[in-house]
Design a protein around this nucleic acid. Structure first.
Lengths: 215, 215, 215, 215
DNA sequence: TATGAATGAGTTTTCATTCAT
DNA sequence: AATGAATGAAAACTCATTCAT
């Protein structure tokens, strides 16, 4: 068999699974879940369809496996970028930078995770929501820690979860915006968001709030 | 046609179109773009399929029409909720409230707009991105006006568009979060976001920024 | 459109349904349930596959519809061939003749009913077993009536249901045998079975039984 | 290969073939010919698929081998249960008892033979029909012997083959009925059938026939 | 205007069968 | 002798779309 022969045969299962997942992420991210066909995935993977079904199960299963893998990669990237001994604001900053760095260099993963997974019904969003929950919890923990230290009142504390959701959403949206403005450096994007959120949160904690009544 | 024929026919075009669009929004929001079938839409609309094609064109066209209509409704709701003579912060506040009010009472519209439109490829996102742009511009204008008045430096000014994007994303994400926490009153959600963003933005404008260097 | 144009268009639903069922019975009887493909059925029916699914549902549904239709035809043929005022033996005789006449002129129906329906799992056999039950009940009623009149003992009475089952099975088997011996006239086949069964039953009723002990 | 390797290999051919056939009979009888998959059979047999193909050939071949083996077992059981020196009626009685005993303790075999084999097209029915022929011949011989001894007329003699077919069918059908009424003892079932058939046949032989003309 | 009837083209999925080791 | 890896071929089913009336 010549060296150029792309279709190497009898590879061990693990290798094939990786090939397939790679191809699937690529195709799903390009065409979306529904418009992606198993045919194309099998072509891109250089593997016949029956192998996909044998190794990864149905189209749904395959998609879920993609989401799971990419979500884990993303969360690992974020978590491993955070120094748990640093103060909360530094931790948030590190997390944001890691997040944007990941998105910057794994656009396909991001598209699959953000655009596709959300729009599909329950079965998939669960995987996704699980990851989102971890992210929100991560942020929530930081906020709560800060709030407690600084003595935040009860009512405001309740809102941390919502704030965390907003922050995660803002990050996602900003990441999307960033896809269309690639010239902007990672650091800048992360820094803008950090400022917007952290300073605002700081004011909030200190009771320095905006109310319509003031006007 | 007998007099007893209960099915009213020969309705004016406008009425038919409305029937169809209403049905389409409902079905799209329930099943998603791809899983929605023209058959079901025609059933729900009480109109035969050929009529749909005659009036609204292909499935893609129909979906685009839905997006457009709902996006316009949303933007109208927001804009008409804003008093153009009020100061920027009040305008932002009014806009946020109107937005959350709309989402709260038009969940179907929101699902179609947010979850479905985004996940579909180019043709649809355009409609959606157009609306997003209008929203971002709206916010951007407020921010810029404020920044200018308060004398924001050049570099920061560049970031207003990104900030606006983040704000819009945060709003969307928070709206989603809210769907799962319906007990929270509209006013609270809007107020949280307003505080988070406005105060943070205020600090930003005043040069009161967070930087990793501080630590 | 020329007269020879086989594919007549826009036929009313009923007509199409009949076409489809006819084709399905033919194909199922030729290839068996599993080896019959919807493609072939649609070709034979001169109708596209989607019509089949629209009108008759899934392959299972289609098969069930075939069974039901043919089973009803068969039972109607049998029942309508029986004079309810005749004495039991005459009724049995009439039924047998009608049965063999039907099988003789509807071999396809018979193959579908006897060979295919039985071999498929639960869902189908139910339809079939329902018909079989009707047949067995029919015979059982005749036997019981006779037995009662002639004063059959309790224990033997219990066996009538089994006897009826045996008779039905004998009929089926004989019908199958007959398919391979078409030269034999209907009347002869029916008459043989009638004799075998009726006389034996008569002996049974009169206590004139065979037991191994006798020897 | 390490000594710890628990999976015993290099078994002699006969043993492997038996393993495979046992598994195949079980799986075929549970799911039917078509719904049985070679995968499941190989799993149940604890043997890899290529071995099955090496030893027993294609799926068709494998099924045919099952039929053949089970049919032989059944016929052996019947034949070995008959004392060739006994009078015809006793032989029939012994055969019937052996038949029902076999079915009672080999339900899987029976399902494969009766329900599956019949429904498949030509290739299989041949094996089956061969066995059926042997059974019919067996019975036919008994009937003919009796008829001759008792001096049956020509015309009636011709019908013995059909009678044998009917008897075999009745047995099969009764066996099926019995599967649903397991409380009935083997002896009773066999005895009912014996009476129904033998007495009827006896009458037949003695010219004591039923004719519609009588009424 | 309005629709029941009709289909081409495509999808996911499964399975018997065979290499390469 | 024995098997994990691999696939060609075909099946059931669906859907957007368009005639003919």
């Amino acid at each position: 068999m010549s060296v150029e022969d792309r279709r190497v045969k009898r590879l061990p299962r693990e290798v094939r699974e990786k090939q397939i997942l790679d191809a699937a992420v690529r195709v799903f991210s390009e065409h979306g879940y529904h418009n992606a066909s198993m045919d194309e995935i099998s072509e891109v993977a250089g593997v016949s369809k029956p192998m996909i079904y044998a190794y990864l199960g149905s189209k749904e299963d395959l998609f879920a496996a993609c989401i799971q893998r990419e979500a884990n990669l993303l969360m690992e990237a974020i978590v491993s970028g955070i120094d748990a001994d640093a103060p909360p604001d530094m931790q948030l900053w590190m997390g944001l930078r890691s997040f944007f760095e990941f998105v910057g260099s794994n656009k396909q993963s991001w598209r699959v995770l953000h655009r596709q997974a959300i729009s599909q019904g329950g079965p998939f969003s669960e995987e996704l929501l699980a990851m989102r929950s971890r992210a929100i919890n991560l942020v929530d923990a930081l906020l709560v820690r800060t709030a407690t230290k600084r003595g935040m009142d009860e009512h405001t504390q309740k809102s941390t979860e919502a704030m965390a959701a907003a922050l995660v959403g803002a990050s996602e949206s900003l990441a999307d915006w960033w896809l269309d403005h690639p010239a902007v450096p990672t650091r800048a994007v992360a820094s803008w968001l950090m400022n917007l959120v952290w300073m605002g949160f700081g004011d909030l904690v200190e009771g320095n709030v905006w109310t319509p009544a003031e006007h």
